[in-house]
């Protein structure tokens, strides 16, 4: 996991994002600043409503930034026109894996067609070339060739998610954003997908891992960024954040995650953390 510290791959600086219009306009992200180095694995942790998905969606241009800057590979993505966005997306530099593959894959398209879609959109290849590329990705995510012509509904959750990852990898992205990639899966499938992501992390694809559960990503991430109510409250190497959490919310996260070796931290301590949070942010 080499981290080239010279130039960050993803640079988010002072990002502000608002939702809604007029009187109902609400600020959901406040001055978010963080970066991801090439080949690094970073976890973006926060509860529902903390804004973690919003940040991810802003990075890929689905949500406009009100202030601040987002740049990928040195290129400033803030305020791009929709045709410029289309061009950037077709370059395949940044890719996104959604939480639920049942929803992110067209139920009427075969796995082959879904995985091939990014290539077909850019065009310029014949059928054989496309299928070759698809097969290469299938191999990379450990999907058997026999599943090529199956529909999403005919395969398991783990296989679906791996197909979604294959679709994201087919453009050889430098940054892969994965949004809760295993929360819709069961144990055996989760392990497979997490192993796969860990393998990928060893290569030169940077991963931005979005999750509400620190426990699910602790085994993979190099660094962790904690988001609470739209603000970055803590950031640092994974083991540091877990073993010496500073912010009350981080302490609560660490204390809440159920582990096998001990029951969760006791209730009074958690309640006192919650009280602190209520007073602070």
């Amino acid at each position: 996991m080499s981290a080239d510290t010279s130039a960050p791959l993803l640079d988010v600086d002072g990002l502000d994002v608002f939702y809604g219009r007029g009187a109902r306009r609400k600020q959901v992200i406040h001055s978010a600043t963080f970066s991801v180095a090439p080949g690094e694995v970073v976890g973006l942790i926060g509860e529902t409503g903390s804004g973690k998905s919003t940040i991810a969606r802003t990075i890929v241009g689905l949500v406009p930034a009100a202030a601040g800057r987002v740049s990928v590979g040195g290129r400033d993505l803030t305020g791009l026109s929709s045709s410029a966005w289309r061009g950037f997306r077709r370059s395949g530099t940044v890719q996104y894996v959604f939480q639920d593959p049942l929803r992110s894959l067209d139920p009427d398209l075969t796995l082959h067609d879904s995985v091939a879609e990014p290539l077909l959109i850019t065009g310029g290849r014949n059928r054989t070339q496309v299928t070759e590329r698809v097969l290469a990705q299938f191999a990379r995510v450990n999907l058997d060739e026999s599943l090529l012509r199956r529909l999403p509904g005919q395969v398991s959750g783990g296989q679906r998610q791996r197909a979604a990852i294959a679709r994201a990898l087919i453009t050889e992205p430098r940054l892969l954003i994965v949004d809760e990639p295993v929360s819709a899966l069961d144990s055996a499938n989760r392990v497979q997908v997490l192993e796969l992501l860990r393998e990928l992390a060893g290569g030169d694809v940077a991963l931005l891992f979005i999750s509400h559960d620190l426990g699910s990503v602790a085994g993979i991430t190099d660094r962790v960024i904690v988001l609470y109510r739209g603000r970055v409250v803590e950031a640092g190497p994974t083991s540091d954040v877990i073993n010496h959490p500073v912010h009350p919310y981080t302490q609560l996260l660490v204390g809440s995650a159920p582990t096998l070796t001990r029951a969760g931290a006791d209730r009074e301590w958690r309640d006192s953390l919650r009280a602190q949070l209520g007073a602070a942010v």
Binding site: R190, L194, S216, V217, I242, R262
Partner: peptide, 13 residues
Amino acid sequence: IDEHHRFGLDRFL
């Protein structure tokens, strides 16, 4: 059980 040890917080705490 292995999953928790490999990917969960157990390994840290």
